[in-house]
């Protein structure tokens, strides 16, 4: 019943300026696009592509936890399955990369429809447990199924030619594709959140019984959001498999589900830009601290503890709170 969110009385909600973005968000978006465009000239493109894939993954995850309050602990299943399907289609059937990525996303969405249909019957910790259990089933399926090649994974997936024309074996060319996919996915999520559907979604997060009493069947919205989130996670995983040329068990392992939770928490739950920043920080750490081996995991654990103890809103959440804007 405590309704004190720490706000001074009746703060007016910021006005949308363009495409559902507030002014602050528009500036942040400009900054992000500028970074995406400039960074490949400074940093290693493959590393950046890895960041973008995980950023999209985290954004897709955030769609559920941030705007519907559903904590999925099985998102690796969609990320990994997207990679496997994409890799298999590109390598064995010789599909062009764009079709393979789309197929990866669609299969992940279909998997999400099945898993979501079962999981949304529960809420809170039980929802998380059901998604984890179902994702573990997917993991063991991937361990045993012939097309995934078990422990070896799918190796040397060809990057191919985009639309039969742009040769993606060039890191730079591939980078623009990945950047395009990331931005398209990012904007799609933003649109979902700021659609008539998004309004109902947020209402369900705020007060599910009340939303039901207004005639909204909450489960329908949860399932649709789950499918969308799974599909986008699949696209992220598929893109990653094209970038690295491999699809392995790592990406369907529950560790990956935990990692995306960490990225989103670190960046800022329910913020638009938080998951992107969280993914960038975690991937950068894994990349540049790789020489410390297993200690990276310990450091990640430490960061998680600090995050929970000291800045619960996450990096972007704290900044937004400090500047009193929505980001």
């Amino acid at each position: 019943m405590a309704d004190g969110s720490g706000f001074s009385p009746a703060p007016a909600a910021a006005k949308d300026v363009l495409f559902g973005f507030t002014l602050a968000q528009l500036l942040a978006f400009g900054l992000m696009v500028a970074f995406v465009v400039i960074s490949p000239f400074i940093l290693y493109p493959v590393f950046l592509m890895n960041v973008l894939c995980f950023a999209l993954f985290a954004c897709a995850f955030n769609l559920l936890i941030g705007y519907l309050g559903l904590l999925s602990f099985g998102h690796a299943a969609f990320f990994g399955m997207g990679g496997y399907i994409c890799g298999h289609l590109a390598k064995v059937l010789g599909l062009p990369p764009e079709l393979a990525i789309i197929a990866g996303g669609l299969v992940a969405a279909a998997l999400g429809a099945g898993m979501g249909w079962l999981a949304i019957r529960r809420t809170g910790i039980y929802f998380a447990m059901v998604t984890l259990a179902l994702a573990q089933m997917v993991y063991f399926f991937c361990l045993q199924a012939p097309f995934t090649h078990g422990e070896d994974g799918i190796q040397s997936i060809p990057r191919g030619k985009l639309l039969g024309f742009f040769d993606l074996s060039n890191d730079f060319t591939l980078y623009w594709l990945v950047a395009g996919i990331f931005l398209a996915g990012f904007l799609m999520i933003h649109r979902i959140v700021h659609s008539p559907f998004g309004q109902v979604m947020k209402a369900i997060r705020e007060n599910e019984p009340r939303a039901i009493s207004l005639g909204y069947r909450a489960d329908d919205y949860k399932l649709i959001a789950f499918i969308l989130s799974a599909g986008l996670a699949g696209v992220a995983g598929a893109t990653k498999s094209i970038v690295f040329g491999i699809a392995t068990l790592n990406d369907v392992h529950w560790n990956m589900s935990g990692e995306v939770v960490l990225m989103t928490l670190l960046g800022g739950l329910g913020t638009v830009f938080g998951p992107v920043v969280g993914a960038a920080v975690i991937i950068t750490m894994q990349n540049y601290l790789a020489e410390f081996g297993a200690w990276v995991t310990v450091m990640q654990g430490g960061i998680f503890v600090i995050c929970v103890l000291a800045f619960r809103r996450g990096i972007i959440g704290e900044i937004a709170n400090f500047l009193r804007v929505r980001l």
Binding site: D16, F19, G20, R191, I192, H194, S195, P196, F197, G198, Q199, V200, Y216, D220, Y221, I224, L228
Partner: peptide, 8 residues
């Protein structure tokens, strides 16, 4: 209001 692709 299932239209998640439309603006507000």
């Amino acid at each position: 209001s299932f239209d998640f692709w439309r603006s507000e």
